[in-house]
Structure formats: structure tokens, C-alpha cells
């Protein structure tokens, strides 16, 4: 049972009169609990595809189905609600809220919408996540007092706090040195196996790609390779 499927998804950007076909009819399926890498050179369409899976951007045509739910006809409100409840995000440049400290940044998604969680349970859960990403001593610090690697750990904890079943990460290691980058990917992998959270991350670092169970390789807005656990995958889902 796939958790995400893309059906002939196209995305065209219009720059004045010039059309840029960023994604040229892409189809693939993603299984729940997988650790997926979307790989490809710069400009191949990684960010565009992740944004469409993340319901941040809408395809020009085609359908993104998440958890059996087609999303193309949903309103901005409904899409926002789905992003909040189903998805978690990790960004290349961390994107923490500068005026909130580590603990508050992680808490933030729980304060939006209709999240109902008992105060004590919330505190324990956030503290647990902080421990998981190794920042217990940094709880009260503001983002600008942290290193890049630490900031990305906060971002990971924030992405997980609503217990989403899909976490999207667009080049989460691009702003980190390679050693820190590897640690971040390892942390994501650890959480993936512990919590059974589906991770989809994009990268153009070959070393990081190799950790994934499922690799989708792009070039010029098209899928050129789709391999899961060593087996090539069909475009249509079973």
C-alpha cells in the first residue's frame, strides 16, 4: 500500500513569456516507512517535486495522492491543515523562527490549529525529542547561538513533534560540512527506523544517496532511475 503516489505530475513555470518545464510528467510511488532519496543534478527538479509532495506548491497538471487522498482540488485551508497534520518539513537553510528558543521552536507546530495535547505529555514529548537530537543542554538557546548542525537537529525535532508520518527534507545537508551532514542523515535514519516515519530527502551528494532504501533519480525534470531495495520500480503503484 503506497503512502504517496504521483500520477503524471507536470510543473511549468512561466517567466514572462518563457515557459520552463521544471517537471515533465513524473509518476512514482512511495511506501510507508521507507527512507527515500530524490537525487539529481542542480536544476533537475528535486525542489519542485518535494514542494508538490509537501503540498507547498501545486502541479500544473497530474495528481499527488497522499494517504489515498487526491490533493489537486483541495483549498489552501485544507492543504495547510494536511501539511500540519500529516507532513513534517526540514529545510536546507534550517528556517527556524529566530525569536523563539530551541524548546519553543520545537513546540511551535503544536500551538497551531486544533492540536490537543495535555501539557505534561507535551513537555515530556518535546524533552524526549530534544534528547533524541542531542540538544538537552541547548533548550533555552536562540537559533543564532547554535551551529548549523545543531540548528538542523532542532529542525528535525520540530518536523517530528506533530508525529507526522511523512517528513520531507530538501537538501538537509547542503549547508553543513560533510561530517555533520552525515551525522544528520544518520539521525534521520535512526528516527526512521525507530518511529517508522517515512523520510523523503533530496540531495546531490552520492555518499548520502547510498543510505536510502529507495532512490529516485531525476534529470531534466524526468525520472531516470527508480530503485527500491535493489529492485527497479514501475511508475504505477500496485
Amino acid at each position: 500500500m503506497p503512502i504517496i503516489s504521483l500520477e503524471n505530475v507536470k510543473k511549468t513555470y512561466y517567466l514572462g513569456k518563457v515557459e520552463v518545464e521544471a517537471v515533465k510528467g513524473v509518476s512514482f510511488c512511495i511506501e510507508k516507512g521507507d527512507f527515500i532519496s530524490i537525487a539529481g543534478p542542480s536544476g533537475s527538479g528535486k525542489t519542485t517535486i518535494l514542494n508538490m509532495i509537501g503540498l507547498i506548491d501545486k502541479p500544473t497538471s497530474g495528481e499527488v495522492i497522499i494517504d489515498d487522498k487526491p490533493t489537486s482540488k483541495l483549498s489552501d485551508r485544507e492543504l495547510t491543515k494536511m501539511r500540519h497534520q500529516v507532513l513534517g518539513f526540514i529545510f536546507q537553510s534550517f528556517n527556524l523562527i529566530p525569536v523563539l528558543n530551541v524548546w519553543e521552536n520545537i513546540e511551535f507546530p503544536l500551538l497551531i490549529g486544533e492540536t490537543r495535547i495535555a501539557p505534561q505529555e507535551k513537555k515530556e514529548w518535546i524533552d524526549h525529542l530534544i534528547e533524541e537530537v542531542g540538544l538537552t543542554e541547548w533548550k533555552k538557546h536562540k537559533p543564532n547561538e547554535l551551529s548549523g548542525g545543531q540548528r538542523q537537529r532542532v529542525a528535525i525535532a520540530r518536523a517530528l513533534v506533530t508525529r507526522p508520518y511523512i517528513v520531507l527534507a530538501d537538501e538537509p545537508t547542503a549547508n553543513l560540512d560533510s561530517k555533520t551532514g552525515e551525522q544528520i542523515i544518520e539521525l534521520m535514519k535512526k528516527i526512521n527506523s525507530e518511529l517508522d516515519t517515512t523520510f523523503i530527502f533530496s540531495t546531490h551528494d552520492a555518499k548520502i544517496v547510498s543510505i536510502a532504501d529507495h532512490i529516485i533519480r531525476l534529470k531534466d525534470g524526468e525520472v531516470i532511475e527508480n530503485v527500491r531495495k535493489g529492485e527497479p520500480q514501475p511508475a504505477e503503484c500496485r
Partner: peptide, 16 residues
């Protein structure tokens, strides 16, 4: 702008 985008991605509605 990026902060607003982040908040929106995380689940902030327009009215928020």
C-alpha cells in the same frame, strides 16, 4: 518572507 513561508509550510493558516 522566508519565515512566513516556513510558518505556512508548518501549518500556519493565512489568517494566522
Amino acid at each position: 518572507i522566508k519565515e512566513i513561508g516556513t510558518m505556512r509550510a508548518i501549518g500556519y493558516q493565512q489568517k494566522d
